[in-house]
Design a protein around this nucleic acid. Structure first.
Length: 873
RNA sequence: GCCCGGGUGGCGGAAUUGGUAGACGCAGCGGACUUAAAAUCCGCCGACGAAAGUCGUACGGGUUCAAGUCCCGUCUCGGGCACCA
């Protein structure tokens, strides 16, 4: 008998056409059925699917198909995060309009997703660059504007002085130079739109405690990002410039500098102050001092990213002003420093070099005094080697009236003093800043605002929405085409008919991705959302990259609360469970070319391996000369280490690609793409195909009491596997271990030689369970195998297999026996043996006796079902 | 710089609540089949040791009858840091 070979191409295309014919994945709002909304982060349509997408979407598809077999009414939609910078870059490079490029990419990528067999309801597809989609976020923005939750203020951007344009952080290289011009970027302030996410800071923070379906790491990151702190805001009086009294009127200044601190207990240790370059007092000082003026100017040459600012060499200059320490009354110098930012807090900080490491380093560098005011109450020590940061078991010193106090008392007493004598107030602060949503780019959703002649903003009324982004554009340079198009920006002020100017900035693309999950519920609604949103929401399972742990996932949570507060949704949170998957990585190969690495793809190389099979070297096929073996890194075009999913599907089939992407690592860890591993999974599917074809199995009844030892063993393995795979998918989401245990069952099934009707029935039970367990991972091949097993139903609608508890029972179990914690023997005991019986059997074992020898048994620990540890000396 | 995560055989990883370290797969080695190769099948596979056994989860300490798992410190790799998405 020759089995039909595993022809994955024919199988996959046939099974996919059955799904299309039956419209198998359309989701409807069914009363009575429990809903399950499974969502993967939507892709940016870059042109082709990469392995990161394959991994992400396979996870979602496995969960969707699993839940469907569990009887849930499943929604799994897909769409396109279609606005963004890459389309503009491609447009400038290739001289095509971003819209055309984007729509072509979407067509291509939709086809690629289909070829992987993902169970999407394409009737709900959302494309964020379509006016049908973005008109609703424009409408929503106008609602926020009316409520005062959207407002305009000055904010810092990267300015390229050569290109005369704003740059994204990504477009600024490590040296602070613009990527196209190579010119040093400058910080510049322009007016921009913001959403008041800080109004929701407390709710966003508190809710995190209850979100137990989210990974702890993500919740911790969000907590730290929001950064709630309790402290005191108060004033330092300006004493004057050097010996001179403050001439407040001449300098046009307030007579004080306001600061915020979480450590009022250390105010006595404040030995200087530092203000931002943009602070009014710094500007005033610049009038007297060319040095200060020069310093302020130099502070503008820096990027705007936090990493860039924090790693900057700490520089500063004294302003000549002095301030009065409100606790000690001492005169302390006021400096201007490049690490203080006007946009954070009050734009000024009090410096406590004794108890803050950054202040300590700055003071050491510039010879400023360092004063200790807190010390350990257990082992007091000095601060010669660095700041003393502890707050527990401490006592205040050198603090006059506030000496001898622990942290909470010192905090309270000093705070009281500051409230009374320094215009102080206790204050809760957040690290979280309001969300800046303006982008000076073309390929985004236009902000629906018109400015009148005074520059006052007016929201575009609902009847005039959407404000359409012109799609047929040409670039004259790098600047946004709508900023140079009077046909776009010349308009009239709503309601007045007077001439007005349209806003030419567009929304941050996180704006679109903050509510798309809700639009999938009612994609054709003639309003932002309709009642269907409350049927499906919240999303039961959200899946995407860990890189979105803070920004996207926080903005989406914020947006959901905004939508709730205008009555669009009822739930408080958008995503009940979250799975953050790791990156897909691969080896890199490079040569040094003028100090910069030049990367090569694997196909261009001949690899050498050592006797253990490790890659020991590589040569370029083209010239036969060696190439360096680099690190294993995230797949990317720039490192030439990407593996094309389509090529893999062509060679091995979608089922193999899906199976490998789930088998080799747990989903939250990075996955190394290895062709050998892919071949292993392909081999497994071929064996499975052949084995089930050859299997001497038949559906039928058997009496468990009459089964042989081998038959009982296979049944136990079958049901243990059902239990394990179910738990691995449902609770642990460790798909790699689920696959490993299915392979174990398969190995046992292929060793099993059925004898008689009962044997054939037990084999059939195992095969039937295995095919159903595999369906979420390998939906095409299992669809066909299900028919081979004699069923006429569609596998994807079958019920998930259930565990037969009776099949799991066993008579005897083995116990490991340790002597003083070292494994010495293994003994067999009845599965219901008591602790005493286990102990007796263990002590009677001769290997155990030999190791105990003459020693006295002090203690015996019995861990039921696992081991016995005998402590003897 | 700050926040978060990781580090286990030749490799990816398993060990779920502190209880047998190395499941499953890859690579490698040996064998069967074959004119031969591929494919397939069977076996071996952490280190040292003749064996008994000893050692072994990045490194240094600690807690415990028992530590890959918990605690303290260090090194190192990765993710994020607000205009990449």
């Amino acid at each position: 008998m020759t089995a039909a070979p595993y022809d994955f191409r024919a199988i996959e295309s046939e099974v996919q056409s059955v799904w299309v014919k039956n419209d198998a994945f359309r989701a409807e709002e069914l009363a009575g059925a429990e809903k399950y909304y499974c969502l993967c982060m939507l892709p940016y349509p870059s042109g082709s699917l990469h392995m990161g997408h394959v991994r992400n979407y396979t996870i979602g598809d496995v969960l969707s198909r699993y839940k469907r077999m569990q009887g849930f009414n499943v929604l799994q939609p897909m769409g396109w995060d279609a606005f963004g910078l890459p389309a503009e870059n491609a447009a400038i490079k290739n001289d095509t309009a971003p819209a055309k490029w984007t729509y072509a990419n979407i067509e291509e990528m939709r086809e690629q997703l289909t070829s992987l067999g993902f169970a999407y309801d394409w009737s709900r597809e959302v494309t964020t660059c379509r006016p049908e989609y973005y008109r609703w976020e424009q409408w929503f923005f106008t609602q926020l504007f009316e409520k005062g939750l959207a407002y305009r203020k000055m904010a810092v951007v990267n300015w390229d002085p050569v290109e005369q344009t704003v740059l994204a952080n990504e477009q600024v290289d490590a040296d602070g130079r613009g990527w196209r011009s190579g010119a040093k970027v400058e910080r510049r302030e322009i007016p921009q739109w913001f959403l008041k996410i800080t109004d929701y800071a407390d709710e966003l923070l508190e809710e995190l405690d209850r979100m137990d379906g989210w990974p702890d790491a993500v919740r911790t990151m969000q907590r730290n990002w929001i950064g709630r702190s309790e402290g005191v805001e108060f004033d330092f009086q300006i004493a004057g410039r050097g010996d001179q009294p403050a001439d407040v009127t001449e300098d046009g200044l307030a007579d004080s500098i306001r600061v915020y601190t979480t450590r009022p207990d250390t105010v006595a240790g404040v030995t200087y102050m530092a203000v931002a370059a943009e602070h009014p007092i710094a500007r005033a000082a610049a009038k007297y001092s060319p040095e200060v003026a020069g310093f302020i100017k130099s502070c503008a040459d820096a990027g705007t990213s936090e990493a860039a600012l924090e790693t900057l060499e700490k520089r500063g200059v004294p302003l000549g002003y002095e301030a009065l320490n409100p606790v000690t009354g001492e005169r302390i110098p006021v400096w201007c420093a490049n690490f203080v930012l006007m946009s954070y807090g009050t734009g000024a900080v009090m410096a406590v070099p004794g108890h803050d490491q950054r202040d300590f380093e700055f003071a050491s560098k510039f010879g400023l005094p360092i004063k200790q005011v807190v010390q350990s109450s257990k082992s007091p020590s000095g601060i010669e080697d660095g700041a003393f940061l502890d707050k527990q078991d401490t006592v205040t010193i050198n603090s006059g009236a506030f000496d001898g106090l622990d942290f909470p008392t010192a905090f309270e007493k000093t705070a009281e003093h500051l409230v009374l004598h320094a215009n102080g107030a206790k204050k809760v602060n957040y690290r979280l800043r309001d969300w800046g949503i303006s982008r000076q780019r073309y390929w985004g959703c236009p902000i629906p605002i018109v400015y009148d002649e005074d520059g006052t903003p007016h929201a575009v009324p609902e009847t005039e929405l959407p404000v359409k982004l012109p799609e047929d554009v040409a670039y004259s340079g790098v600047n946004s085409p709508i900023k140079e198009d009077p046909g776009f920006y010349e308009t009239t002020v709503p309601g007045t008919g007077k001439p007005g100017t349209r806003e030419t900035d567009t929304f941050d693309t996180f704006f679109e991705s903050s509510w798309y999950y809700a639009r999938y519920c009612s994609p054709d609604a003639d309003s932002m959302l309709d009642e269907r949103a409350n049927y499906w929401l919240p999303v039961d399972q959200y899946i995407g990259g860990i890189e979105h742990a803070v920004l996207h996932l926080l903005y989406a949570r914020f947006f959901h609360k905004l939508m709730r507060d205008v009555g669009l949704v009822e739930s408080d949170e958008p995503f009940t469970r979250l799975l953050t998957q790791g990156m897909v990585i691969a080896e890199t190969f490079y040569r040094d070319a003028d100090g910069k690495p030049e990367y090569f793809t694997r196909d261009e190389l001949e690899l050498e391996r050592d006797d253990k099979g490790r890659i020991s070297g590589a040569t370029l096929k083209a010239d036969g000369k060696p190439v360096s073996v680099g690190r294993i890194e995230k797949m990317s075009k720039s490192k030439s280490n990407g593996v094309d999913p389509l090529a893999m599907i062509e060679r091995y089939g979608a089922d193999t690609v899906r199976l490998f992407s789930m088998s080799d690592s747990p989903p939250h860890q990075s996955l190394e793409w290895k062709e050998g591993g892919v071949e292993g999974m392909h081999r497994f599917l071929k064996r499975l195909w052949r084995e089930i074809d050859d299997l001497d199995a038949a559906d039928g009844d058997f009496d468990p009491a009459d089964l042989s030892e081998a038959e009982l063993d296979l049944r136990r393995k079958t049901h243990e596997t059902i239990a394990k795979v179910t738990d691995d998918i449902e609770r642990r989401m460790t798909f790699n271990t689920a696959i490993a245990s299915m392979m174990e069952l398969f190995n046992e099934l292929s060793r099993f030689k059925p004898q008689g009707d009962a044997g054939r029935a037990v084999a059939h039970e195992a095969a039937s369970a295995l095919v159903r367990l595999l369906q979420p991972f390998v939906p095409h091949a299992t669809h066909a195998l299900w028919e081979k097993l004699g069923y006429t139903t569609a596998l994807l609608n079958e019920a998930w297999p259930e565990v037969d508890e009776d099949a799991l029972k066993r008579d005897a179990i083995s116990l490991v026996v340790q002597v003083n914690g070292k494994r010495r023997a293994e003994v067999s005991v009845a599965s219901d043996a008591s602790k005493e019986e286990c102990e007796a059997v263990a002590l009677a074992n001769e290997d155990v006796q030999r190791h105990v020898g003459d020693a006295t048994v002090r203690k015996v620990i019995v861990v039921p079902g696992r081991l016995v540890n005998i402590v003897a000396n």
